[in-house]
Amino acid sequence: MTDLLMSRRGFLAGASTLLAMTAAGCTTTTQTTREQANLPPPVPADVVMMYAALPQERFPVPAVDLRYLDAKYYRKRVPYQTTEKPGTVVVDTPNFYLYHVEEGGMAMRYGCGLGRAGFEWAGRGHIAYSREWPIWTPPSEMIDRQPELEQWRNGQPPGLDNPLGARALYIHEGNRDTIYRIHGTGETWTIGQAVSSGCVRLLHHDVIHLAENVKFGSPLVVLESTPAFTPTPQLV
């Protein structure tokens, strides 16, 4: 009788433990499923490679933290219907895209950051030239607004901390420098945002790619309602 009672108690204890483990297992599975449902979709391997570290650069560029880049702003070749001739650079300000027009109704599309309120610009010009790892010199008006920039009055040396980044493409209108640039940035979260002082910023990887493929003298069109450039203090 005693043996039977012990066996019954052992069975009940084992059953209780099993029930607890089963319940715990269900809870864990549900939690894991919920966490997985909240994860961003996996980044394609080709995108990871496209934005991998660039150790060969004069100032080695780290890999892009793709957690902070919306997938719609990945560099991509896309169909693009336009009357602009191949080689033209088109900045689509409402959608935060820059297109480099190609043959056959295609274009290379880049996500970009643009000028914040009060620094927007639009119109036509051309890419006069580009510079690798340029020096940045803030204009006096900008230094007046941001006194901490006084240290760079005669120019900030190139590097990852320089606002122009890995490359700068200089925008002219006729023979006049508009003081606007297409330049690099390592601030991934600013792509798709209006944050700069009027310039177009691309990720370092993307501005390097654009600079390697654009020809000097190529037309540039900034799509906006404003009919012409309205120059404001340079850059960032």
Rank of each mutant, 00 (worst) to 15 (best):
Y73Q: 05
V207I: 11
S218W: 01
F96D: 04
C112H: 04
P94A: 01
A15N: 06
S197T: 06
T32D: 12
S16V: 12
M1Y: 11
D144C: 00
G198D: 02
T137G: 03
M108I: 09
E224M: 09
F119C: 03
A128D: 11
V221I: 14
W121Y: 08
T185S: 04
V47D: 04
C26G: 15
N162H: 04
A128R: 14
Y51R: 07
A24L: 15
M21P: 00
M50L: 13
A71Q: 13
V91P: 07
Q36N: 13
R109N: 03
H172W: 14
A107H: 05
Q81E: 14
D65F: 11
R145H: 05
P139N: 06
R75T: 15
R124D: 08
P134F: 00
G155N: 09
L19S: 13
F229R: 00
L149W: 12
P138F: 04
G155K: 08
V47E: 08
T22H: 08
E212P: 02
R8D: 12
L114Q: 01
W133A: 01
Q146K: 13
L114K: 02
V47Y: 09
W121I: 08
S196R: 02
H205K: 08
G10F: 09
P55N: 14
A63E: 12
P147Q: 08
L149A: 07
G192V: 03
Y74S: 03
P163H: 04
Q234Y: 07
V43Q: 05
V89L: 15
L39G: 04
R116Y: 01
E120D: 09
V90M: 04
P79N: 11
L220S: 04
A53P: 00
N162I: 01
T230A: 13
W121Q: 10
P60R: 06
P62M: 10
H205Q: 15
A168E: 05
P40C: 04
T30R: 14
H126K: 11
G186T: 09
A37S: 15
Y74F: 15
T2Q: 14
D161V: 07
R67P: 02
T93L: 00
K85C: 05
C26Y: 12
L169V: 03
V43E: 06
P60E: 11
P219V: 06
A122R: 00
D144K: 03
Q151R: 15
D206H: 07
G155V: 05
T232G: 12
R116V: 01
M21R: 07
E212N: 15
P134Y: 01
G111D: 01
A53C: 02
C112M: 09
N162G: 03
C112S: 10
F11S: 08
A15R: 09
S196T: 14
L4S: 13
K72Q: 15
Y180L: 03
I182E: 03
L66S: 10
S7I: 12
P55R: 11
I143W: 00
M106G: 01
G14M: 05
L114A: 02
H209E: 13
M6I: 13
I182N: 03
G25D: 07
P44T: 03
